[in-house]
Nucleic acid binder design. Structure first.
Ligand SMILES: [Mn+2]
Ligand SMILES: [Mn+2]
Ligand SMILES: [Mn+2]
Ligand SMILES: [Mn+2]
Lengths: 148, 148
DNA sequence: CGCAGAGTGTAGCCAAGGCTACATCATAGG
DNA sequence: CCTATGATGTAGCCTTGGCTACACTCTGCG
């Protein structure tokens, strides 16, 4: 019998930690689609049009990169686009965009409530938002609602 | 001269938003290295050894993936490793690990303070931590320190 | 009403970070 | 002291999300 120098064959704590990293990786892969959906909805709401070049400029990427990402949104049933006609969201895309928009605002609000300066809050929120679970969001809402 | 149908050629708000996304992208690319450094330091501190297989299991990736990432840490001057001898951190690697460890704890503590359940806090922190700026961290500390 | 120039799309490159399959090394038990 | 086995390393593949370069389409002015 070996006194294992490393705890055990399958320490459950290890699996828990591995699962955390796995969740973070999945959240990250969803982030791109979420940001595009949010931005497209924003452009459609304000200007009435969401064109690849506008999207690219707002995201700070080349238009080719934006067009490829839009193709991914189409593949995933979140957007539609006919050549040279601009981008639109499907019902599913709009639902996603709305959810993301609310989450984004809530994250910014929480950061502000914690005393983070406005521009830092906006900046950090852009990355943080994709990693905030529903249960955390619910906690954020309770925290902001509570008196005082 | 063209009467631009879209606000202006270089609306500063657009650049601001683009810069936010750019920061988030950079933070993301740093995330992997940060998690490895933190984990290696953790393994070295507890068991005394950080072996590729252990690292892989904790992160939930294949050992081949871990070895490639370790190569990246070596390239960036954060780790050293002689074949079959385990992984160690350079001084720079240790500094990074320490910074990441403190940040991770602070993020978890803030989430807990906001009323996020423990496991959700740990899970979300694993992703959030990489997007929290120094100025936000400072705000978090002030918030936690403040009486009541 | 034509066309210059902006916008759009396509092709092909790269690096990162996953994976599996296979080859090599180290070592602990027999 | 041999060797079976687990750990380590290598090779090669895939997908994603960047990029540039180039080709095509639209359209508002002149
Ligand atoms: Mn975002
Ligand atoms: Mn956002
Ligand atoms: Mn992390
Ligand atoms: Mn961490």
């Amino acid at each position: 019998m070996t006194i294992e120098p490393h705890p055990a064959a399958e320490l459950p704590a290890e699996r828990t930690q591995a699962r955390r990293f796995d969740k973070a990786r999945h959240a990250q892969s969803a982030a791109l689609v979420e940001d595009y959906a949010e931005l497209i909805a924003d452009l459609l709401a304000s200007g009435g049009e969401a064109r690849p070049t506008d999207i690219a400029r707002r995201l700070g990427v080349s238009h080719a990169t934006a067009i490829k990402a839009i193709a991914r949104l189409k593949r995933e049933g979140l957007a539609t686009a006919k050549p040279y006609r601009g981008v639109f969201l499907t019902a599913a895309g709009e639902r996603l965009a709305e959810r993301v928009r609310l989450r984004h605002r809530l994250v910014v609000d929480i950061l502000l409530a914690l005393g983070v300066p406005a521009e830092a809050a906006e900046q950090d929120a852009e990355g943080i938002e994709h990693h905030v679970s529903d249960v955390a969001l619910a906690a954020f809402e309770r925290f902001l609602d509570r008196p005082r």
